[in-house]
């Protein structure tokens, strides 16, 4: 009798603690959503006052930014962010895919095993260190590259500039491209390795060359993963602050060429947060810029999740 009572009491305690854990763990699992909503709400709440002053459309497309005179147009900074991010993606994604294919499909196992830890390690290097490298190596090289291109091709659209320094969109793009490449390579390698060996063998068996097998059999299977890798790189490049600020020039004018300086949104916020409380509505405008970054990141991720879900279905069917 005593024994069974003790037994049932301990059983009750076990069930009780399990129920308690279930409640608290599920509660914890709702924290990420809560954090995201809170972040969006706080930024939106601080941004709203600016819209009594300029319309949302003017705020996004206006090209005058004179806070002390109450003029707030973000388009210069939006274009700075777009230029730098696009350039980084163009410079990073194709070489990273090629390098990953080489590592997985062509290189010896030992090479891959030696290089992968180094790539993972480089993904962990702080962005400010990439900025230091940009300042030391990329910025001095950029004007020479510009002169060389001009000497060979003459004046070209997007490539001709009167900027005598190397602080430019191109420098920012190169630094970001190198910064995101370890992430892209590490994910792409992982994805390529999960493509079943049979897929390659089937293509080779019908007479495909190695590259043809990769192009027609391996890459279509790996496409969703490669897109995911590119989106991760994109988010990192898009929101990077210090590394870009160090090399991009921070001149508020819409760039006409990759050799022109630019002024991305992140740099705008980081450079001016110190004085934003002293000029009316300046804080609302800067928080609006931060909100814009948040909204764009949310849109990217939801879109890529939708694309991945669709592609995943197609590949598996």
């Amino acid at each position: 009798m005593k024994l069974s009572l003790a037994g049932s009491r301990s059983a009750l305690r076990r069930i009780f603690s399990d129920k308690l854990a279930a409640r608290s763990f599920l509660l914890a699992a709702s924290l990420p959503l809560l954090l995201l909503l809170l972040m969006a709400a706080a930024l939106l709440f601080r941004t709203l006052p600016i819209f009594q002053f300029v319309s949302p459309w003017e705020f996004l497309t206006g090209d005058l930014w004179r806070p002390s005179q109450g003029e707030f147009g973000l388009s210069t900074f939006i274009s700075g962010t777009l230029w730098v991010t696009l350039l980084a993606l163009i410079l990073a994604v194709p070489p990273c895919i090629f390098a990953s294919i080489f590592l997985v499909e062509y290189a010896r196992r030992g090479t891959l095993r030696g290089i992968l830890p180094a790539i993972d390690l480089l993904a962990g290097i702080p962005s400010v260190v990439y900025g230091v490298w940009g300042l030391l190596v990329v910025v001095p090289l950029v004007p020479r590259l510009g002169q060389f291109l001009r000497g060979v091709f003459g004046d070209l659209p997007f490539l001709t500039s009167s900027n005598p320094t190397g602080f430019s969109i191109l420098a920012g793009g190169i630094v970001l491209a190198v910064m995101i490449s370890p992430i892209i390579v590490s994910i792409t390698v992982e994805v390529l390795r999960t493509v079943p060996q049979g897929v390659r063998e089937a293509a080779l068996a019908v007479g495909a060359t190695r590259w043809q097998a990769i192009k027609h059999a391996v890459l279509p299977n790996a496409l969703p993963g490669i897109i995911a890798a590119a989106v991760m790189g994109l988010s990192r490049a898009f929101g990077e602050t210090l590394a870009v600020m160090m090399v991009v020039g921070n001149t508020p004018a819409i760039p006409r060429s990759v050799f022109d300086p630019g002024y991305p949104l992140t740099a705008l916020i980081a450079n001016n947060y110190g004085e934003m409380m002293s000029i009316p509505r300046y804080d609302a405008a800067l928080m609006g810029a931060a909100l814009l970054l948040l909204v764009v990141v949310i849109i990217f991720n939801v879109l890529s999740a939708m694309v991945l879900a669709r592609l995943g279905q197609e590949v598996s069917s």
């Binding site: 990420p32 959503l33 809170l38 930024l43 929101g239 990141v297």
Partner: peptide
């Protein structure tokens, strides 16, 4: 479905620029 949704939320949070975390923290 809740777990799938939470994982998507975490992916979004992973991609949110650290500057935005900073601005949010500053507001709080």
């Amino acid at each position: 479905r809740w777990a799938t949704f939470t994982r998507l939320t975490l992916d979004v949070l992973w991609g949110v620029p650290s500057l935005v975390y900073g601005a949010f923290g500053f507001l709080i």
